[in-house]
Amino acid sequence: MMTFYWVSLFIVSISFTGLLFRLVKGPTVADRVVALDAIGVTLVSIVALLSLIIETEFFLEVILLMSILSFIGTAAFAKFLERGEIFDRDPR
């Protein structure tokens, strides 16, 4: 089973690296935001796999948190890209 985790971890890492490249390279900001969102997902997987490997349950909170933040972060960036601001000051 351990081997399986390691292999998965390896695969996820490759995608992580690829995303990182996209994050660095750009070229547009939108690319980067998408990359960041995807990185969030890969991070969740990585942490999950890691906690399986080191056999601890204490990182479950971290995983949950990461997914929440990834969601919010992506939403914020998306809004920022679209409107140039995050919060609307006036009621719609």
């Binding site: 939403a75 809004k79 609307d88 006036d90």
Partner: peptide, 13 residues
């Protein structure tokens, strides 16, 4: 973060 999310989705007022 929860409240921020609310602000994000709706608006501050």
């Amino acid at each position: 973060t929860a409240i921020v999310l609310l602000m994000l989705a709706f608006d501050i007022p």
